[in-house]
Amino acid sequence: MEILFENDDLLVVNKPEGIASIPERDPSRPSVRALLEAQGRGPIYVVHRLDKEVSGVLVFAKSAAVHRELNRQFEERLVRKTYLALVHGEVGPEGGLIERPLRAFGSGRMGVDDIRGKPSATEYRVLERLRGYTLLNVFPVTGRRHQIRVHLYSIGHPIAGDLRYGDRAVFRQFPRLMLHAQRVEFALPSGEPLAVEAPVAASFRAVLENLPERLGDYPG
């Protein structure tokens, strides 16, 4: 596990895709926290989570006090998160703000609900337009479960490789979900600002390099 930053208060790692952030119901399945604690880096407290399919920056606190402080920053939206996402289709504007309320619909699936959903907001900016796809920087303002995935799906640009919110017939050709937590910015308990960036995973880069061979028609 690549360590991106560590001091007496925090441990920040570059999470690989395909592994859960914290232990799942099946204790035999590995998780980032369990692996780190098995290496003698525990106990550690998860500050935020990344979906199992997502790679990138993952922050752990080394004490309950630091955990509370970082949770406060997340709750008060003082943490700036930047994601890299490859989405289907050519996104028209250079950037935008998606404000659509979200709620759980059962079986782990989230969706837009204008009546019962919780307020949710996601900013995005176009980095590059590829043939049939667009590479985005995405900045979640709120932190709902699957927020980025659902918001981009709701505007007609699902994330490539997303078998939950995209078309399986098209997206199963991708070896991974094309979403990477690239950068997190927050304040250390001392008040000093910290920005941690995770190199883009080799599996993510490989898809971009071979994208012309992976194009397919997305229904609708």
Rank of each mutant, 00 (worst) to 15 (best):
K81E: 12
A61I: 03
K52Y: 00
E75H: 14
L78T: 05
D113C: 11
D26T: 11
G95C: 04
F60L: 10
A38W: 00
R103I: 07
G40Y: 06
Q73T: 07
E69V: 02
P101Q: 02
I98M: 01
K118N: 06
E37H: 09
L97N: 06
D114I: 11
G111Q: 04
E53C: 00
L70G: 08
K62A: 06
V87P: 15
D26K: 13
S107Y: 04
G92R: 11
R109F: 04
R33P: 00
G92K: 12
Y45C: 04
D26M: 10
K118E: 10
G56R: 09
R33N: 00
V32M: 11
I44P: 08
D26Y: 08
V112G: 10
P43H: 09
V87I: 15
P30E: 13
P93K: 02
S31V: 04
F60R: 10
G106M: 03
G117C: 04
E53F: 00
Q73Y: 05
H88N: 15
I44W: 09
R49P: 05
L50R: 05
R100H: 08
F105N: 03
G95D: 06
A61P: 07
F60M: 09
F105P: 04
L102G: 01
V112A: 05
D51P: 00
S55H: 08
G106Q: 04
L36R: 01
I115E: 13
I44K: 09
L84R: 15
Q39L: 13
R109Y: 03
N71L: 09
G95S: 08
R109Q: 10
S63P: 01
S28E: 15
I115C: 01
V91P: 12
K81G: 12
L78M: 13
V59C: 06
G96S: 07
R41K: 14
I98P: 04
D113P: 13
S63N: 02
R41T: 03
V66A: 07
F74K: 15
E76S: 15
N71D: 12
Q39E: 15
S28I: 07
V66Q: 05
E37Y: 08
L86T: 11
D114F: 14
P30N: 06
G108E: 02
V32D: 01
F60W: 11
E37D: 08
